[in-house]
Design a binder for these strands. Structure first.
Length: 568
DNA sequence: TGACTGCGCGCC
DNA sequence: AGGGCGCGCAGTCA
């Protein structure tokens, strides 16, 4: 990979100062491949440079230290880019990947590139041309040109350059999307949300006070449990009151509360549900997170070791069904909500090359396919068996179904079993595109050594085995969850490119939400059907990108709706 | 008062 | 059952 990347895009390195500190290295990048097709641009001139490139035919991949810090400023200036290479995210992947085990990049001591991205500046009005004021540049500027060169070498010298290139491109596009989705925001109707809260809880109370409905449920609990001072929000308090009232419960978990055979049970469960709603997605949440009809979560790309995204603040990945009615398309617009059906089992079938399992996946519902193949009797059994294989069930009905699953789908089961055994030995496992798991903690490795040593006690051996099994469940799940995350990134990247080609009179459809295996597009109503088609085409493309011709279908459920609660 | 932990529970 | 998260609260300790 030289100055042009695999798609023929010109690389432009964005550096924090006025001149690249390693100009010779940049020329070398440029000369390796197509001469003269790599440039660099100071961060302060970035938006001008991006605007200038828009009119040219050449595709550009903008190379910068970290998207969250740079791109947010561009978006505020009204500028969007097609492709990027996020040095920090890509470095994290390459440094850990077993595919690039021999690289110089991996041998480096940890440095500034391995530190978390510098805290981004708070949203503030910026002029169009200095979206990155000097004070936000890191104190000791790491050299992006040298870093890019080092990363390109690591990829070129790896055992899987093609897969790693795809992974790095997908991860970087994900970073662009995370910033774009934050800037665009999820359409959120505060009035609907408020009406919903008022209906369930009563009118908004003064800060710190319980809403009327919760207050009356609390009073009912105090009466029923003969505990006049009970605070139902306090677990110890509630547990004590329940036991004094003669209920044999060991905790106040919902599953345990459900076993209580007394009318007080329903009061308890309703209190729990409503107080959770109030604290997690009540009026205070709305005040903090919803502005101008938009909810803007902070996505953390690569925030989970498996490659899944996390969010910080707002709990965007846990929006309860209770409040989804408040997610409403603007007038004249629609929401296209799509989720990949049984994504993880399908991914497992593809990566293990298990043709029988792929056959079961040939339809909208993989679990029904397993039933139709005569492996188990019911859909629910099929689901538990499959999830048990992926998560590592050791007991219960799910574990009991494993032998049948193994007979029917030997290759799929062998893949997750091998990942589990590797983890138990303290080894690293790697996803389809080359993201490797972290090494186990020193505690576990120490346990392993202690248990293997002369004269290890029975207790030490037991502890080591337990740790090993725990880590094996993690690595078992890692390969499937991580590869599913890669499929989802490619799906979304492909969808993003297709959406950029659509435009209506009222505007352009854009992604507004992503949740592991689900996407939401906000679109002018007239384009909704085209968007739905694009979502499906993108899923087909993602499957082909990752698994080539292997015949696994990635079925989607697609809904065109006015509000989120109408989907599913 | 603030940092931290464990619990419980929402999502996939 | 079993993997991955984030968050709010209560309680604890410095």
């Amino acid at each position: 990979m030289g100055a042009c990347d695999e798609n023929g895009a010109v690389l432009v390195v964005v550096h924090p100062g006025r001149t690249p500190r390693d100009a010779a290295a940049l020329r070398e990048v440029a000369d390796d491949g197509t001469p003269g097709r790599a440039w660099s641009v100071p961060a302060g001139e970035l938006s001008r440079a991006v605007r200038a490139r828009e009119d040219e035919d050449d595709a550009v991949r903008w190379v910068w230290a970290d998207t969250a810090g740079v791109y947010r400023g561009l978006l505020r200036a009204g500028v969007r880019v097609e492709r990027a290479h996020d040095l920090r995210l890509c470095r994290a992947i390459l440094r850990r990947s077993t595919c690039a085990a021999g690289s110089a990049l991996r041998a480096e001591a940890p440095g500034p590139w391995d530190a978390p991205a510098p805290q981004e500046p708070p949203a503030a009005p910026t002029s169009l041309f200095d979206e990155l004021p000097e004070q936000h540049a890191p104190a000791a500027e790491p050299d992006p040109v040298a870093e890019l060169r080092s990363q390109l070498e690591a990829v070129a010298g790896s055992t899987e350059p093609g897969r790693l290139r795809l992974l790095l491109a997908a991860e970087s596009t994900g970073a662009l999307l995370a910033a774009e989705m934050h800037a665009d925001g999820m359409p959120w109707d505060a009035a609907t949300h408020d009406a919903l809260l008022t209906e369930l809880l009563g009118p908004r109370p003064l800060p710190g006070a319980r809403p009327a409905r919760l207050e009356s449920l609390a009073a009912e609990l105090r009466r029923a449990l003969v505990a006049p001072t009970l605070n139902p929000d306090s677990q110890p308090d509630l547990l004590r009151a329940l036991r004094l009232a003669g209920f044999d419960v060991a905790s106040t978990r919902r599953s345990e509360l459900r076993t209580i055979e007394d009318p007080v049970r329903d009061v308890l469960l309703e209190y729990r549900s409503l107080s959770r709603l109030l604290s997690a997605n009540g009026w205070a949440w709305m005040d903090q997170w919803v502005h101008d009809g938009r909810f803007r979560p902070d996505y953390v790309v690569g925030g989970v070791v498996s490659g899944r995204w996390a969010t910080s603040g707002g709990g965007a990945l846990q929006l309860p069904a209770q409040v989804r009615g408040a997610v409403r398309a603007d007038p004249g617009w629609r929401l296209v909500v799509a989720d990949a059906a049984q994504l993880e089992p399908r991914v497992l079938a593809a990566m293990s090359g298990d043709a029988a399992m792929a056959a079961a996946a040939r339809g909208a519902d993989l679990y029904e396919g397993v039933v139709a193949a005569g492996i188990v009797a019911t859909r629910s059994e099929a689901k538990y068996a499959m999830l048990g294989a992926i998560y590592g069930a050791t007991t219960g009905a799910s574990a009991a179904l494993m032998p049948r699953l193994e007979r029917a789908y030997p290759r799929a089961v062998a893949l997750v079993e091998q990942a589990a055994r590797a983890g138990e030995r303290g080894e690293v496992v790697t996803t389809w595109l080359g993201r490797s798991s972290p090494r186990p903690g020193e505690a576990f490795l120490g346990d392993l050594r202690a248990a293997a040593g002369e004269g290890a006690g029975a207790e030490e051996v037991r502890a080591a085995r337990r740790h090993a099994r725990d880590w094996g469940r993690f690595t078992r799940n890692f390969v499937v969850q991580g590869t599913a995350a890669e499929w989802a990134l490619c799906w979304m990247a492909s969808l993003r490119r297709r959406l950029r080609a659509l435009e209506g009179d009222e505007g352009r459809p854009h992604l507004v939400f992503f949740l592991h295996d689900e996407v939401m597009v906000h679109t002018p109503a007239v384009l909704a059907d085209e968007v739905a088609a694009a979502v499906r085409e993108a899923a087909v493309e993602a499957g082909r990108l990752l698994f080539g011709g292997f015949p696994v279908e990635f079925a989607l459920q697609v809904a065109v709706v006015g509000s989120y609660d109408e989907a599913k």
